[in-house]
Design a protein around this nucleic acid. Structure first.
Lengths: 211, 211
DNA sequence: CCATTCTTGTGCAAACAATCACATAAAATG
DNA sequence: CATTTTATGTGATTGTTTGCACAAGAATGG
């Protein structure tokens, strides 16, 4: 179970499995075979088994996987057996939607503080009654509330500077919604949620198709 | 220039290059070397050259790439030298944020119609004055407005049904924001924008790190 | 309790992707 | 105009990821 030997695509798929299993559990399904789980997630059955095999033997031959048990194991692997405290930076349309998004909380992710550079916004409260803080308060609040994940929802022009502040405040992992590649020092992680990159991908395929 | 031989990761990177080049052009940079472009996008310089080489010889040896020219070529490859008309389904917090998001329009993507199942929402107007249509109008409007891309921002429970309606209406490509894998018939494309999968990835790495 | 059925776990080969390293060509220099 | 410098384009190499195919283990049924 060496950290470095596990494909990053495996981690992404574990996340999908976790969601599918949650769904199955709600549907009162107790046991699932790799075929079915694979189909639900749009992957190859052998891939499901191989992904899981990196971390242990969770199934029963001739039977399948116990839904509840497998879900528990996957959540443990991903670190979802706890709450994660997040800071949101950038209270625009997108930022507001993210705070209001109930999926995060359901999965154990919580915005415990929100920030913006705009002095007109600082001091106001969100519909959720959360106070909008200025960037000067970032470090103190990150430390006080033990925030571990930063979510950047600023315009692209401010994203890199924001990332630097987050790093300085002691945050190790960033989810970036700004359409720009952020440079991070060694040992820090950024992951990008990039709407237009995805759309460009669709546009490319539609364009090819038509040729 | 065989369609099938081009790595999908290359397409994703072309999208990043396109954005970086746009940025450089605004900064009055006329010529860029693969090193610099690679650094800006967080990839290997050889990769930049190889990605571009799939589609032609756009650079000048000993010099680099002409920013404006390369941007033009990449946009042509991706199909960004035109407007793309999109339909949005699901007018919740996220949907509203997407419609208001000005990055889409800047890149040539436009929401020309919005839909929701909720009868209380149908008939109302967005802040942008766009009318919210019912799902029964989907097919007619998709045809009338020649919509080619569908964006799903419904709850997970409605996503698959929505996708079916979009397919029935003649839409070939879907961008799905709902946290669920959507099954599509052969020849149709879905791409997912999945916040919690990304967060799970961060959580995993933070968890490993700590061990 | 043996045979059959089922489904996992995994060695291996194939497909795919990233990187290196250098030949190639253009420009700059003296 | 020969030499040096620079940076592209690409064949070769290395590394990673996926998928097949089957042995291994567990349940079922006669």
């Amino acid at each position: 179970m060496k950290f470095s030997k596990i494909p990053s695509a495996t981690i992404t798929r574990l996340s999908l499995y976790s969601r599918a299993l949650e769904d199955l559990m709600h549907g009162q399904v107790n046991i699932i075979a790799s075929d079915k789980l694979a189909q639900k997630c749009g992957v190859n059955p052998a891939q499901v088994r191989k992904d899981l095999a990196y971390f242990g033997e969770f199934g029963v031959r001739g039977v399948g996987y116990f839904v509840k048990e497998l879900l528990f194991e996957i959540k443990k692997i991903l670190g979802l057996n706890r709450r994660w405290r997040m800071a949101l930076i950038g209270i625009g349309n997108l930022g507001l939607a993210l705070v209001a998004h109930e999926n995060f909380l359901k999965q154990g992710y919580e915005f415990v503080a929100v920030f913006d550079v705009d002095p007109k916004k600082v001091g106001r409260r969100l519909p959720s009654m959360q106070m909008i803080h200025g960037m000067d308060e970032l470090e103190a609040i990150v430390k006080e509330k033990q925030i571990e994940i930063g979510v950047i929802a600023t315009p692209a022009s401010q994203a890199q500077a924001t990332a630097r502040l987050l790093v300085a405040a002691g945050i190790k992992a960033i989810l970036n919604f700004a359409p720009v590649q952020i440079q991070m020092p060694e040992g820090f992680i950024v992951d990008n949620v990039d709407f237009t990159v995805k759309l460009d991908n669709l546009a490319y395929h539609l364009t090819m198709e038509a040729v």
